[in-house]
Simulated scan of single mutants.
Amino acid sequence: MTSTDQTPHVDADAELKPNPHATAEQVEAALKDTKLAQILYHDWEAETYDDKWSISYDQRCIDYARGRFDAIVPEEVQRELPYDRALELGCGTGFFLLNLIQAGVARRGSVTDLSPGMVKVATRNGQGLGLDIDGKVADAEGIPYEDNTFDLVVGHAVLHHIPDVEKSLREVVRILKPGGRFVFAGEPTSAGNVYARNLSTLTWHLSTSITKLPGLESWRRPQSELDESSRAAALEAVVDLHTFDPEDLERMATNAGAVEVATASEEFTAAMLGWPIRTFEASVPPGRLGWGWAKFAFNSWTTLSWVDANVWRRVVPKGWFYNVMVTGVKPS
């Protein structure tokens, strides 16, 4: 089966119309429509998403993206890089693919997302880096490319947003060339999501309550911004559709027609620190924390990630880590 391309191509002159600020009424409507919620939430986040998650396109995030790829892809495949043409599914701002291209994993790429705002930012980021990138607004359950188009398909924190994950993986296998590979990273595990959500919620309540105290007003974001963040959080609860056990991802990938399927997980103590840090950062005015805080946050996460990979991975079940990644190959 070959997909019909019915979605607009995005280039430097494309005029996308994202909706960057959702009203309470729009949020209410989106609560009843999963895909509308995806578009609304990610349009809302697009222009500030890189800052919110400390995403960059320098060596720090190049190494991070390549590290995720190397953690799941066999060494013999790594020696044969780069792939010629790659696609990022649910690209967001292009973080994963753009940094993988810079890391030598692929020569050129395409980005897709259900959110026009995200496709706009991702293509702009790619062009700013001088990379060979094109983009399309697309539904992951009906990817608008011909069979056997890509050598590599990647995604980061995207599968948990897709209503029918197995259907999407079948589409991924369809558009891959025979022998082509997919790599999806950054998906929440069922166990990890419990402690991450609880720690994040607790941090938000503590931060927004403490900054009401006398003398701490300068640490409090304006109430209108806090209200908007709360509306975004309400949508986030709608757009995050799934958590995964590693064996569930393996089963879905195999059912989709992939071979050489494998999963790996990461971030245990790093997630227990990372989620409160990110939540605290979102609760205070932008720029209030400064470079010293950013350096502390990153170095702490890096240190705990090393401990997770070299200590806890030996004794903690794979499903207890926060992130799980999956890879597979289209049969030759």
Rank of each mutant, 00 (worst) to 15 (best):
F96H: 07
F96L: 09
F96K: 02
L97C: 04
L97F: 08
L97T: 09
L97M: 05
L98I: 09
N99K: 08
N99L: 13
I101V: 12
I101G: 08
G104L: 11
G104I: 04
V105D: 10
V105H: 08
A106T: 03
R108P: 00
G109V: 14
G109F: 10
S110Y: 14
D113N: 08
D113I: 00
L114V: 15
L114T: 13
S115G: 04
P116S: 02
M118D: 05
M118N: 01
V119I: 05
K120L: 12
T123P: 13
R124K: 14
N125F: 13
Q127C: 04
G128D: 12
G130K: 00
G130I: 09
G130L: 07
G130S: 05
G130P: 11
G130V: 07
L131M: 12
L131E: 03
I133H: 14
I133R: 05
D134L: 01
G135D: 02
G135C: 01
K136L: 06
K136D: 05
V137Y: 10
D139L: 00
A140R: 05
E141N: 08
I143Y: 06
E146V: 03
E146K: 11
D147M: 00
T149S: 15
F150D: 01
D151C: 11
D151M: 11
L152Y: 11
V154Q: 01
A157E: 12
V158H: 02
L159S: 07
L159A: 10
L159F: 01
H160I: 15
I162D: 06
I162Y: 08
P163Q: 03
D164G: 00
V165Q: 00
V165G: 00
L169K: 05
L169S: 07
R170L: 03
R170M: 12
E171A: 00
E171G: 09
V172N: 10
V172A: 11
R174Q: 07
I175M: 03
I175N: 03
K177D: 05
P178L: 01
P178I: 05
P178W: 04
G180S: 11
G180C: 12
R181S: 02
F182S: 04
V183F: 07
F184D: 09
F184A: 10
A185G: 10
A185I: 12
A185L: 11
A185K: 01
G186P: 13
G186Q: 06
G186D: 10
E187Y: 03
T189I: 11
T189A: 06
A191D: 13
G192T: 07
G192E: 05
N193M: 10
V194Y: 15
V194W: 15
A196I: 05
R197Y: 03
R197W: 03
R197P: 03
S200P: 11
S200M: 12
L202C: 03
T203W: 14
T203H: 04
H205N: 15
H205G: 07
L206G: 00
S207K: 02
S207P: 05
T208Q: 08
S209T: 14
I210E: 01
I210N: 06
T211H: 05
T211I: 08
L213S: 09
P214C: 00
P214H: 06
P214N: 04
S218V: 07
S218N: 01
R221W: 01
R221S: 12
P222Q: 00
Q223H: 13
S224M: 04
E225D: 10
L226I: 08
D227T: 08
E228H: 14
E228G: 02
S229H: 13
S230T: 15
S230L: 15
S230K: 14
A232N: 10
A232M: 06
A232Q: 02
